[in-house]
Design a protein around this nucleic acid. Structure first.
Lengths: 310, 310
DNA sequence: TGAGGTAATAACCTGCAGTTATGGGTGGGA
DNA sequence: TCCCACCCATAACTGCAGGTTATTACCTCA
């Protein structure tokens, strides 16, 4: 029905045609011949069953549909670019200028963009990225093994300087067929504490934050229902109906908006938390570390103002 | 250096391996043979120069790097899914259940996701999408040609019911080398009105909003510096240093965070505006229109709370 | 009218991605 | 203990997508 998705090169070609106004120039920019570009674009139009470009003898312009597809393609290509930036950073070579470690939540949603932005500004800076959890990242920063860490722990570990680079909120989520989905009243903290949950491994910032919240209650917390070492795996388990979990809202945004997961309100506790960049206290930040920090901080301001209500 | 980007199928395969824990099962899910999946994954690892999965004789699990790449892949695939949903909706067949028209800004950033979410819930609903500008979309709704329109005009046109589905803000943007980039004081509205700007064509919601703001000032507005019919084209022109423009913050978020564009503060005027769904007044919404509206409204709530500061 | 730009077509070549067939390895159940 | 079930990798073959060069057709402008 929908047909096979197009490949990246075709999408890139489309955006280049939009930018340059000519198939031949777009081909040259991509390092392929003009007939190859022509065939590719024809193929793309056939696959999508849409007329994307108006070919005139004085250049080519996108149709209305072409413009829309082009805009959407740019979003895809931006994600691909982030992925490639992240991949490049994961390939930890020995001769890197800046070593970074990050918790999973931050690595999943922010670091590739930040690293990509840094690479775009200073293309010859080599950044390496290690993905662990908040505890490990903080420890590596304390030991000076890395130039900067990104964590979501509730408190800044001693011996580290920090700066906030964002904020998020924990949410209790359940599958739509879970009993809690039909509750009218919010869940009380002690009830949450007594309920077996799907959680991350100890040391994860998400789990630490959760436990810190629940220790305020004088109730023996229930043993975990299941322990998984990846947010995505927990998400899948909750969707599959295994049980409730507490996750960052950023990791389940898509599922919430599409109704695959439901948020259960919790009474009386503040589940907001800060995302922080940390580095060894007293150490002067290098140029690239400074730059990465400024990118991360700026992103925070933008994200907050971009989609605010009313 | 970075190498060629991988194809969608390989990324999808990786996510399926993560989900199913087995290469063979992932292959089956994709409708290919097990050796094909094995080769694909080996190819992917070679291309990225990363070990992504640990192959055991009792199944396969992702490595740490594999998990990170998998998470980033899911983001890419989500965008691809939106693109394909949008493409399917652009292919306006005759036998569609719900016709939608949308302004460019909304079509670029929101509608594919909403339509994709709708398709995911009700797979057999056929939605068609027409991308125009706010004026045209409102007119089509008034004439009853479409079931629902999405506009960002400052006021709701008469004869239409409406519901807010989001909000954004206009920003004055310039290239980093523009004189305004070094201003200390905000631009006054009358100065903005006297300055030739790069703008959209008349009828665009962005332009209408801008003109409504500037008509409050008793200054003869300057003639446009350039008129372009796509936000992306204006963005490119501003980046290239042609001159200042006023755009939705959502269309230039990436450029702002990466420093390719700078926001110039404006004194004394409120540049926030509402994004609205509209439909013919008095008409009862069909089931799919109702569903789309609820998806759009829910997304608004989520977007606002997901990345709020402190 | 010719020159310089546009894009499409034809004929050919390469190689990637798919297939089936096969073999090595490990763990659980009879 | 042994065998079977399931995991994955390799080998040999095939087809087609995607590239190339060479050529043609078209429009516009000087």
């Amino acid at each position: 029905m929908g047909g096979t998705p197009p490949d990246f090169e075709s999408l890139l070609l489309l955006t280049l045609v939009a930018e340059l106004g000519s198939l031949g120039q777009a081909a040259e920019r991509m390092g392929i011949s003009q007939p190859a570009a022509s065939k590719r674009l024809a193929m793309l139009e056939r696959r999508l069953r849409l007329a994307l470009v108006d070919r005139g003898s004085r250049g080519s312009a996108l149709t209305t549909e072409g413009k829309a597809v082009c805009q959407w393609s740019e979003r895809v290509l931006a994600e691909v670019g982030s992925l490639m930036a992240g991949v490049a950073a994961l390939r930890a070579d020995q001769d890197d200028d800046l070593r970074v470690a990050s918790s999973m939540t931050l690595a999943e949603h922010f670091l590739p963009h930040w690293i990509g932005a840094l690479r775009q500004r200073s293309p010859d800076v080599r950044v390496s990225l290690r993905v662990t959890n908040s505890e490990q990242a903080a420890a590596m920063a304390t030991r000076g093994e890395i130039g900067m860490g990104f964590i979501e722990a509730p408190a800044v570990p001693p011996g580290l300087s920090s700066r906030q680079v964002g904020a998020d909120r924990l949410v209790v989520v359940v599958a739509p067929n879970h009993p809690w989905a039909r509750r009218r009243l919010p869940v009380e903290p002690d009830e949450l504490a007594r309920t077996p949950l799907i959680v991350r491994e100890p040391g994860s910032g998400t789990r630490e934050t959760l436990e810190r919240i629940l220790t305020g209650i004088d109730v023996e917390p229930a043993r975990p229902l299941m322990v998984l070492d990846a947010n995505a795996a927990i998400r899948a388990a909750v969707v599959a109906g295994v049980g409730p979990a507490v996750l960052s809202v950023i990791t389940v945004r898509e599922e919430l908006t599409e109704g695959r997961l439901l948020e259960v309100p919790v009474a009386g506790v503040d589940l907001h938390r800060r995302l922080r960049a940390v580095w060894p206290k007293g150490r002067r930040l290098t140029g690239s570390a400074e730059e990465l920090l400024s990118i991360a901080s700026r992103r925070r301001r933008m994200g907050a103002t971009s989609v605010r209500e009313s």
